[in-house]
Design a protein around this nucleic acid. Structure first.
Lengths: 196, 196
DNA sequence: TGAATGAGTGGCTGTTCACTCACTATTTTG
DNA sequence: CAAAATAGTGAGTGAACAGCCACTCATTCA
């Protein structure tokens, strides 16, 4: 056993830093969060973060890819353990899974920030496109539902992103009630409540 | 006639600067675009931009409010001139109007960037909330459709924002075809083509 | 054990940017 | 026409930040 090691391997560090990057970039987005912020969260020096990832853009991109990886894994898990194995049953299970997954907001906000940074940082744009492509392909081939249902699925997801960023789930006004009605949200409904 | 004036009034300048701010912030978002960028676009000095708007955040917020104002105006126009005056007919007309309106991308991208900046800059967050609230209230009271249709309407709008930022309308791949199928997009379909 | 490699850091640098201020030029008003 | 008010600018300031480099300390391996 090597538990008396005081240094990590570079790969361990990279994983830890990616995880910190997800949490930190989710707070303020690409431009508002500094490498020093991420480094502090990971407990290492800013210089070493840059040595591990060569540029801020690549660091953000790595975080984003991790984000899509987590979502994909959750879709797979939900799909495999769905009670109702019909196409729409599987899709519904994945919807539930997504709602649970983004309860902590990090994965959700990172996507919002990535979308904003996509044009100025082409690498990020490609990562978003790749992530959405992979998610869409997986949903289509795994569920076999009609195309419009997948459109719908993503559309509602995007609406959920918007409603979360403006805290609509906590607003007590007609417009907010109207928009959040029936939209599953981990914080808004105790798990186990009937959906729709 | 005062055409020999060489100085503008502050109000004229403000309007011009807001318009420049919409166009400029739409390119890179709140953090990536500088006051100097906006000033150059408006043809005045950065110092004077700051004198007219006191802070970068207020400038961005003014641009965002202008954005919602334009959308709202277009909704009103479309609603009033809808051929089919039934609730869903009016809503459809507004959907068409929105698709046309965001053909130039500025209004669309500004919203995407605003969503990203909303948490770090609370003033922007409030402006987004206010804009969505006003839009939702107007849609609900003017069209009188069921709530879920308005949800749907906004959800598809948000999906459209995503698809535009990743240029999905120009991608020739199954996932892109699937997601853009039937989604109206000013650049994608010549005006006058049958929708749905 | 000692050389080679890898982990990790402190401090610097050049640049960029929001915001300030003292100032000039123009327009209005009495 | 004088003076008050308004439009507009140039030059600067201080802070923040990405990326770089020379360096130290730990680990491995021959």
């Amino acid at each position: 056993m090597k538990s008396d090691r005081v240094l990590s391997t570079a790969d361990e560090r990279r994983a830890k830093v990616v995880s910190s990057a997800v949490a930190t970039f989710a707070q303020g987005g690409f431009h508002a969060v500094t490498i020093a912020d991420v480094a502090k969260h990971a407990g290492i020096s800013p210089a070493y973060v840059l040595k591990l990832f060569t540029s801020k853009t690549q660091l953000f991109t790595a975080a984003l890819e991790e984000c899509y990886r987590r979502i994909m894994a959750e879709f797979k898990r939900a799909g495999d353990s769905a009670e109702d194995a019909s196409p729409t049953g599987v899709l519904d299970a994945m919807g539930e899974a997504y709602a649970d997954l983004i309860g902590d907001r990090d994965l959700l906000m990172l996507q919002v920030h990535a979308q904003s940074a996509a044009t100025v940082e082409p690498l990020i744009g490609e990562a978003v496109r790749g992530g959405i492509a992979a998610l869409t392909d997986y949903l289509a081939s795994r569920t076999r539902v009609e195309g419009w249902r997948i459109q719908q699925f993503l559309a509602v997801g995007q609406l959920c992103h918007l409603l979360t960023t403006i805290d609509a789930f906590d607003v007590d006004a007609p417009w907010a009630k109207l928009l959040t009605e029936g939209i599953r949200h981990a914080d808004a409904r105790p798990s186990g409540s009937p959906a729709d």
